[in-house]
Design a protein around this nucleic acid. Structure first.
Length: 192
DNA sequence: AAACGGATGGGCT
DNA sequence: GCCCATCCGTTTG
């Protein structure tokens, strides 16, 4: 994906990332997933890691659009974000779920399950299945071993916009997007 | 079908 | 110490 794609508004990017492909290349092989669920985290957003300013942990969130922000959560899982907006503003899009496209055997091996629906249907699951680690924090997603490639935009009628999952602050904001009816979305939202 | 608790470690008060 | 942008196995209704 070219760099201009990441310079739009963060909400717009969260929406237009749906349907795009995430490709990971490691020594074990190639794996590809289609993005089916995202969440936006903005600079004036109490639910965002960037809300209280730049720290060592969230520093990459304040870097430049088109880079990866990867962090450790609950001591055992990584979450993968795309940095968006303007350099240094502290906004990003969390990738919450993918649909398996290629490298399914490798994903099954990494996830230690055969269940297709359980490979990529959550932010911690997909980093495990795709081999995304803390070492990917700050990498450029336009090229290299971890990248996002362009696909046609979906129409608004195929997209659901609703509230985010797993946070307490800012949980009323409609910053979550997913592909309507897609079976790989992590879960339905609480408030309808 | 929903609710619960344990795993597990870095960062912040 | 306590809090997490989570997941999984187990228990309960």
């Amino acid at each position: 994906m070219k760099s201009s794609f990441y310079k739009k508004s963060t909400l717009e990017i969260a929406k237009s990332l749906l349907g795009k492909y995430l490709i990971s290349r490691t020594e074990s092989g190639v794996s590809i997933g289609k993005i089916v669920e995202t969440e936006a985290y903005l600079s004036n957003d109490p639910g965002s890691h960037s809300f209280k300013g730049k720290t060592k942990r969230n520093a990459q969130m304040f870097s430049s659009p088109g880079k990866a922000y990867v962090y450790l959560i609950y001591g055992m899982y990584n979450c993968f974000n795309v940095v968006t907006g303007v350099d240094g503003i502290g906004e990003a899009v969390l990738i919450r779920a993918l649909e398996p496209i290629k490298g399914i055997e490798l994903m099954q091996k990494r996830r230690k399950t055969k269940e297709i629906k359980n490979l990529l249907s959550g932010p911690g699951k997909l980093t495990q299945a795709m081999g995304i680690a803390i070492s990917h924090n700050g990498v450029n997603l336009e090229k290299g071993n971890l990248k996002i490639i362009n696909k046609p935009n979906l129409s608004d009628s195929e997209i659901i916009q609703t509230t985010r999952i797993g946070i307490s602050l800012g949980n009323k904001l409609p910053y979550r997007f997913y592909i309507k009816g897609n079976p790989f979305v992590s879960r339905k939202s609480k408030n309808p």
